[in-house]
Structure formats: structure tokens, C-alpha cells
Simulated scan of single mutants.
Amino acid sequence: MSKRAVRDLRDLGALRDELRRAEAAAEAERQRQAAEQARRLREQQAFALAVGPVQPVKGPQRVLHAHQPPPPEPRQRELDEQAALAEALSDEVDVESLLLTDDGLGFRRPAIAPDVLAKLRKGHWAIQRQLDLHGLRRDEARESLAHFIRQAHQQSHRCVRVIHGKGHGSPGKQPVLKAKVQRWLAQRQEVIAFAQASGPQGGAGALIVLLASRQR
């Protein structure tokens, strides 16, 4: 036999061995997969025997609405403006010379007609919002009032009520916030007039405030 024939036989033998090894590996993989499938089946059967027959629970009839993100709000800017407005309201401003006491406590800007105060006391304008300052400390009341007036004016409200109390629960039975609220209101450019409320509207414990028309 020639050397070439011998070499060809050797190559065929090596190829046959390689095919046998590949078949053995494939068979081992098939056996492994079969064993794994059998194990999972045994586990499922064991779980079914332990739990018993079950039925799927019907889910509630729910409608999923698309989420609508809230509109962006300039919260930090509003907080900064509120702080600046509250700090701008001074307790030291003298407004007594501007208060009219001929027919009950009242205040009006020079450009406002005198009969406006009478109309305020008589309820000519409907009260659209009110702020109750009972129980608030001075700084809390000042900040709340600044925010309230600013927001009411932004919402184009013209007539609001500010309840400062009659002072029955204060030391000396004196209305602590009454004079301060008058000073604070007189410093707000949105406020063009205010008058002491009539009896049904709160009497000496409240002020009826008229706000300027908002420029559009």
C-alpha cells in the first residue's frame, strides 16, 4: 500500500473519531435537557399536589387612564415673591393720618371717591374671598395677608374680607392685629380702600377691602 493511501486512511479514521465525539456530545446534551425537563415536570406535579386545584382570580374592571402631568408651577419664584412682599410690609408706617373716622374706620386712596367707603360698609360689592387671621402670630399674619391680597388681585377679585378679630382672647382685651392689618393693607398698591365691616359682616373684628381692577 502506498504512503498516500495510508495517509488517506488515517485522515478518514480521524474524521470518523471526530464525528463520534460530536455525536456523543450531542447525545449527552439531549439527555441533559431531557433530565432538566423531567425535573421541572416533577416540581410542577409536586406543587399541584400540595396546593390542590386552583382557579384564576378575575381582576377588577379597571380603566387605565393616560397619566397627565400637572402643569408646571413657578413655586420657587412665588415663594421668593411672597417673602419679599411680606418683608416689604412694615409695622412702623404711620397710616393714622390716612384713616377716616368720621363714619367708622375707613381708608381710601386720594383718587378714590368718598362715597366708596359708604358703599363698602353697605355691602355694595359682594365679598368674593376672606382671610381669617385668628390665632396667627404677627409674622404669620403679615405673610398670610400679603399672599392673600396678591392672589386675590391676580384672580381679579375686587372685594374681600380680612378678619383680624376683636381681641377678646388677647392680653388686655385689645385687638393686637387690628392696627397692624390697617398698616399692612395701606401699604399694598392693590388695596384702594377698606372700611370696618358692618355688624353682620364681622363688625369691629373685620375689614372689607376693595382691590384695584387688574390691568390686562
Rank of each mutant, 00 (worst) to 15 (best):
M1G: 04
I149D: 01
Q151N: 15
A22E: 08
V181D: 00
P74T: 15
Q128H: 12
L100T: 06
Q154D: 04
A86L: 02
A83Y: 03
G202K: 02
G172F: 08
E140V: 12
I208T: 05
S97V: 13
L98R: 12
D115L: 09
A38C: 06
L41Q: 08
G172L: 07
F194L: 04
K180S: 09
A88G: 07
I127A: 00
V54C: 05
R216A: 08
E73K: 08
H157T: 11
R7C: 12
R21Q: 10
L207K: 03
L211C: 11
F47K: 12
A46N: 13
E81M: 05
L41H: 15
W184A: 06
E23P: 04
Q37H: 09
L177P: 05
G202Y: 06
Q61E: 14
R20Q: 14
A86I: 02
Q174I: 14
A46C: 10
H134P: 01
A50H: 12
R142C: 04
Q33M: 07
A84G: 13
L105C: 15
I163A: 03
R142G: 08
A46Y: 10
E140A: 15
L12V: 12
R40S: 04
E190K: 14
D17W: 04
G52S: 00
A26P: 05
A34Q: 08
P72R: 05
S198N: 12
E73L: 07
E27P: 10
A118H: 07
L15S: 13
E96Q: 06
L99S: 04
R21L: 11
Q128Y: 09
P200K: 00
A14E: 11
R39L: 15
M1H: 07
P71W: 05
F107M: 09
S2H: 10
R216W: 03
D103E: 15
K3G: 14
A197M: 02
K178S: 06
Q55F: 11
A141N: 02
L99T: 01
G203V: 05
Q215E: 14
E18F: 05
H65Y: 08
G169N: 15
D94E: 11
Q154G: 02
D102E: 05
H168G: 07
L64K: 03
H147G: 13
G167M: 01
L15A: 15
L210M: 10
P56N: 12
C159H: 08
I208R: 00
I208Y: 03
Q55N: 09
V160W: 00
R142D: 04
E43I: 11
R109F: 00
L100D: 08
Q155W: 14
P71A: 14
R137L: 06
A22W: 01
Q201K: 04
F107N: 04
L12F: 14
C159W: 08
R62E: 15
P200L: 01
L98P: 10
L145I: 13
A22C: 06
A28D: 13
I192N: 01
L89C: 14
L120T: 01
E27G: 11
R183D: 08
G135W: 15
V209C: 00
P200E: 01
K58H: 13
V95D: 11
Q55Y: 07
R121L: 00
P53H: 11
A193Y: 03
G104L: 00
K173R: 08
R77Q: 15
I163K: 02
I192H: 01
G172A: 09
